[in-house]
Amino acid sequence: MSKARRDSDSAGSASTPPADIVRVNFEFRRELARKVEGNLAGFCYQCGACVGDCPSATYGGGFNPREIMLKVLYGLGEELLTEDSILWQCTNCYNCHERCPQDVKPVEVIISLKNMLSDLGIYPDNVDKVIKAFEETGRTTPVNPAVQRQRERFGLPPLPPVPVDEIRQLIEPDNAEPRAGARADADKGGTE
């Protein structure tokens, strides 16, 4: 970016704006702010305290919580909300939450972004599998006869079924909540 800016500056052509100028997408930011704690990136001053202890930044190739917060500030949703989103490299270790001097809670902003991915119906298969198991049984670990036999061996009572009907009522989207930007088929992708 800096090289391109220098080139255009030195060319001295004031008539055409630099091609890499960033226009903030406020609609994306407004939609993110509707998620629980999705508005916190607004406090980010790009100090980078979140990066040093981030396992995915240390061991991965390209995951950087500060850059993700910067993209959120610019509203670059199209770079974050992709089929192969880098957001899924987050280990959810909460080091960034611990380190941030501004209480941005980068991990929570990342999870809010994942909520937007869910609205779009873009989900890794293994994530979807666990969510479906929860929505169908109220548990994320399957209970089967082998599990119940194991429990019996340890003198433990069988695991009772979870009142799934109550869970379903709780996770139905509120009609009152605006879900702007969500595609019409988004909910079908994530539920049932």
């Binding site: 999870i111 991915l117 869910s118 969510i131 989207p173 909540e177």
Partner: peptide, 11 residues
């Protein structure tokens, strides 16, 4: 769970 279901819908 704080990883999978939370990433679907925090509310």
């Amino acid at each position: 769970d704080p990883i999978y279901f939370k990433s679907k819908d925090k509310l």
